[in-house]
Design a protein around this nucleic acid. Structure first.
Lengths: 156, 156
DNA sequence: GTTGTACCTGCAAATTATTGCAGTAAAAAT
DNA sequence: ATTTTTACTGCAATAATTTGCAGGTACAAC
C-alpha cells in the first residue's frame, strides 16, 4: 500500500518517523500513521483510549492492542513520552513538542507544570557519575503541593 | 479482637503504625497487620502479588483487593514507597529501611542502585521554588545504561 | 516470481489494579 | 446498653494493559 500518495506530500514528521522506523527494520503502516497523527494533533497529553477512539472513527478495524503496541514502539524510539499523571490513565506526549515536567499532588491531584531546566542538573549528574542517559524529558513527580503540604514526607 | 496479646508484646514498628493509623481515625486489623509484616520481612522490594501469596498462606480469607487497599493506605501514610522498576509489577519498599533510587535501563532492564543524596538537590529546589514537597524517597529513573547507551535521548 | 524471513495486526485470553456494594464490626455518642 | 456513625473487608465486576497465537503482508535473496 502506498501510504503517502505521490512524493513530497508527507509532512516532515512522518518523513523522519519513516526513516527512524526503517533504521530498525520496522515499517510504517496505516495503523501507525493514524496513531501518530492522533498524538501529533493533541497539543497536550493524550491517553491510549483517546487515541483509540480517534483512530477507530476513520478505520474501525484497528484494535486497542495495536495502539498500545505502537505507543511502545514510539516510546522506545524516543518519539513520544509516557507519563503517569494520575487519573488512572497513562498520558502520552509528542517528544518534539517541548520537554516539561509536572508536580502531581497526592492529596488534591493538582498538577503544576515545571520547566525542563529543573531536571537538567540531575540529568547531568547521572550522566557524569553513572554514565547513565536518563530519559528525563517528561516526568511526573509526586508529592504534596503547598496547600496540602503535610508532614508525612518530612523524613525524606 | 485483640491483635497484640498482652501489652508490651508488639514490636516498635507496629506500635508506631498503630498510632499513625489512630491519628487518622483508621484501625489496625489482622489483615493490615499481616500485610505490614510481609512487607517488613522482605529486606528489599516486594510486589502486591507476593504479599498476597504470603498472607493467604496463614489467612486464606484475605482478598487481593484488601492488599491493594492496604498498600494505598500505607503509601499515603508514608510508611511504604511504591516504585515501577519494570517487570510488569509495581514494587513496594518499607520507607524506614533506607531511601534509595534505581536507574532502570529501558534496553536491557539492568537496574543500578543510586544513593538517596543524588536527588536531594532536586528535592531542595522543588521545595524552595515551588513550595512542593516532592516524595523522592524511592525513585525509578528510566533511561539507558552505559552499555546500551544510544542516541535516542540525545536531544533531551 | 518463488521462497524465506521478519514484521504487523486482530482477536481472545491473561494480568495487574481499581471500584461499588453489602454485610460486619469497631468506636463514639446517647 | 442502645443507637449512630464510621471504618473495614470479601466478593464480583470493571478497567487498563499485556501477551500468545495464527493469518497476513512487505521485503530481500535467489
Amino acid at each position: 500500500m502506498n501510504l503517502f500518495g505521490r512524493k513530497s506530500k508527507q509532512p516532515d514528521n512522518q518523513n523522519r518517523m519513516n526513516e527512524e522506523l526503517g533504521k530498525k527494520g520496522l515499517r510504517m503502516t496505516p495503523q501507525r500513521l493514524m496513531i501518530i497523527a492522533a498524538i501529533e494533533k493533541s497539543d497536550n497529553h493524550i491517553g491510549a483510549d483517546e487515541i483509540y477512539t480517534q483512530v477507530v472513527e476513520k478505520y474501525p478495524n484497528v484494535n486497542i492492542s495495536t495502539v498500545y503496541r505502537t505507543l511502545d514502539v514510539l516510546e522506545e524510539m524516543g518519539m513520544v513520552t509516557k507519563t503517569d499523571l494520575g487519573g488512572g490513565r497513562v498520558q502520552y506526549h509528542p517528544a518534539e513538542k517541548g520537554h516539561h515536567h509536572h508536580l502531581v499532588c497526592r492529596e488534591c491531584g493538582k498538577i503544576t507544570d515545571l520547566d525542563e531546566a529543573a531536571l537538567s542538573v540531575l540529568k547531568e549528574t547521572l550522566l557524569r557519575h553513572y554514565n547513565f542517559v536518563a530519559d528525563l524529558r517528561h516526568m511526573g513527580i509526586w508529592g504534596y503541593c503547598a496547600k496540602c503540604n503535610r508532614q508525612v514526607v518530612k523524613e525524606a
